[in-house]
Simulated scan of single mutants.
Amino acid sequence: MSFFGGSSDLELFLSRSQVLSVSSVPVCLGAMVFFITEEGWHFSLLLCCVLPLIAAYLGVRGKREIRAGLAAAGLALAVATLPLSFVLASLEGA
């Protein structure tokens, strides 16, 4: 079964999804520490601590089981974590 016209494209997509979802964990944890110390945002504690770990799990599990939908869900969750924390922080400040 080919994905995007070739068999190596699926492996490339799964690898990139895994790397991006796992690399979002230290970025979000660092942002969480900054947000709490500088701005006092408390919603970022919940979002930046829990969601990147779930995204990393989905990315690793999607690559291991060769499931593109699971890897894409992990990637989408990893990408959406910081903007979602900014939105909740703006709601908290209002």
Score class of each variant (00 low, 15 high):
Phe3Ala: 09
Gly5Val: 12
Gly5Gln: 05
Gly6Glu: 15
Gly6Tyr: 13
Ser8Trp: 15
Ser8His: 15
Ser8Ala: 09
Asp9Leu: 14
Asp9Phe: 11
Leu10Met: 14
Leu10Arg: 15
Leu10Cys: 07
Leu10Gly: 08
Glu11Leu: 10
Glu11Ser: 14
Glu11Gly: 15
Glu11Pro: 05
Glu11Thr: 13
Leu12Glu: 15
Leu12Asp: 13
Phe13Arg: 11
Phe13Met: 15
Leu14Gly: 14
Leu14Asp: 12
Arg16Lys: 13
Arg16Ser: 12
Gln18Val: 06
Gln18Leu: 15
Val19Asn: 10
Leu20Met: 14
Ser21Ala: 08
Val22Met: 08
Val22Cys: 13
Ser23Gly: 14
Ser24Thr: 05
Val25Tyr: 01
Val25Asp: 02
Val25Met: 00
Val27Gly: 03
Val27Ser: 04
Val27Cys: 04
Val27His: 02
Cys28Gly: 00
Cys28Gln: 05
Cys28Lys: 00
Leu29Ala: 06
Gly30Val: 13
Ala31Lys: 06
Ala31Gly: 14
Met32Trp: 00
Met32Glu: 06
Val33Cys: 09
Phe34Gln: 14
Phe35Leu: 10
Thr37Glu: 08
Thr37Asn: 08
Glu38Ala: 09
Glu38Phe: 02
Glu39Ile: 09
Trp41Thr: 12
Phe43Asn: 15
Phe43Trp: 15
Ser44Phe: 03
Leu45Thr: 07
Leu46Arg: 12
Leu46Tyr: 13
Leu46Gln: 06
Leu46Thr: 04
Leu47Asn: 13
Val50Ala: 08
Val50Phe: 13
Val50Asp: 06
Leu51His: 00
Pro52Met: 02
Pro52Gly: 03
Leu53Glu: 01
Ile54Trp: 05
Ile54Glu: 03
Ala55Leu: 00
Ala56Leu: 01
Ala56Cys: 03
Tyr57Asp: 03
Tyr57Pro: 10
Gly59Lys: 00
Gly59Arg: 03
Val60Gly: 07
Gly62Pro: 01
Lys63Val: 02
Lys63Pro: 08
Lys63Leu: 10
Arg64Val: 05
Arg64Pro: 01
Arg64Asn: 12
Ile66Gly: 06
Ile66Glu: 09
Ile66Asn: 12
Arg67Asn: 14
Ala68His: 02
Leu70Tyr: 02
Ala71Trp: 01
Ala73Met: 02
Ala73Cys: 02
Ala73Leu: 05
Gly74Arg: 01
Leu75Lys: 05
Leu75Asn: 08
Leu75Glu: 06
Leu77Trp: 02
Ala78Tyr: 01
Val79Asp: 00
Thr81Ala: 06
Thr81Glu: 03
Thr81Lys: 05
Thr81Arg: 01
Leu82Gly: 01
Leu82Lys: 15
Leu82Asp: 00
Leu82Val: 12
Leu82Asn: 08
Pro83Glu: 00
